Simulated scan of single mutants.
Amino acid sequence: MGVAVVRVLFLGGLGRSGTTLLERVLGCLPGVCTLGEVVHLWRRDLLDNERCGCGRPFSACDFWREVGDRAFGGWHRVDPHHVLRLQDRVERTRHIPKLAGRTCDNQVREYADQYARVYAAAAAVTGARVVIDSSKHASLAYCLRHAPDIDLRVAHVVRDARGVAYSWTKTVTRPESDGRETMTRYSPSRAALLWSAHNAAFGLLGARGTAVRRFRYEEFVADPRGTSLAIAAFAGLDLPADALDFLAEGADGVVHADLPATHSAAGNPMRFRTGPVEVRADDTWRTALPPNQRRLVAAIAAPLHGAYGYPITGRRT
């Protein structure tokens, strides 16, 4: 049995592009429900019972319990191992050429339907007009385009490849593991290759008829109000005049966002931050990433770097 059509704003791009900060800001807008990286829901939450963005274990979160009840009649009726097997079979970057076609097989439909049910239930629980999934994976967005119950809008978030590459070299502890695990790391060259592949995939997605609009991280941190309004309009939200009052400029000229707790399923450690948070550019890579690595990343990413308006040299955009 199908579910009501739900509008989903999918934040796409390569990780470390500022999507978590963007999602947290957008989550403060009326009519919006943010779910974090739903692609990890099946393993990290249903199997590993990691913490929700609100701080509680997934199984103890009232929000997710109600979502599970509405979507499936309870999470106990979902076989996460089966969903993960579907994920392995259909949701991989190598499958994008096939997923880009007009038709799909039953496994893709079944896999996408799991997400459609979660999105629709979250919208019903919160009364939201738009649900945000910051999973980022291009392959998942390609699967979701085949779900008839999803009105998919993709905000393609890009950041200077050198900043992304530097961020992937840093050691970041996963707070859900109580300090026992760190997040994945990549070499600058590997990160540059992934940056090129993932961003190119979203360009193709738009050419296949999905609503895709590109937003640059650098423009967002320079003008969080303007970018938030542009994304809200793209998502079909008509905002009241005071919708952005949670963004306030301090005496230092830096905009601060007053962030409430969320029910993020998974994602960057910043999903646990609450209270005032600075919305400012992270340009550490300009001095921390060695010059030879900056040049290497720029060379690998050159075709799309230029198309997105990023200079090959290190000067500011």
Rank of each mutant, 00 (worst) to 15 (best):
A302C: 02
T20Q: 06
T103S: 10
R294D: 13
A60E: 05
A128T: 00
L205T: 13
L259T: 01
D178Y: 11
A155P: 01
T126H: 00
G309F: 10
H305F: 01
D238M: 10
R162H: 05
A230T: 07
V6S: 14
R89F: 03
S139V: 04
G12Y: 11
S167L: 12
V157M: 03
A232G: 09
G203R: 08
Y186D: 09
R174K: 06
E278N: 08
N49T: 02
D282Q: 11
G73A: 06
R214M: 13
V125Q: 03
E218N: 00
D113P: 05
L21K: 09
R70N: 05
P269C: 15
Y142W: 13
A248V: 01
P276S: 13
R280N: 15
G163V: 00
L304W: 02
T184D: 14
D113I: 10
R109L: 10
S228D: 02
D88R: 14
P290Y: 01
Y119L: 06
C61Y: 13
A207W: 00
S228P: 00
E249M: 05
V8N: 04
A230S: 08
P303V: 13
G309V: 13
C104R: 12
L296D: 12
N292I: 13
V90S: 06
A123P: 06
R190H: 04
G36K: 00
R77S: 10
D133N: 03
G306Q: 06
F220A: 15
D113H: 09
R225W: 01
G2F: 05
L86Y: 04
L259Y: 05
S139E: 13
I300M: 04
L194R: 06
H305P: 10
R77E: 10
D160L: 03
C61I: 11
R85Q: 02
V255I: 03
A298E: 12
S228I: 00
A307W: 00
T19W: 09
H156G: 01
Y119G: 00
R145Q: 04
E37C: 02
Q107V: 03
G253C: 03
A251P: 14
H156T: 01
T19K: 11
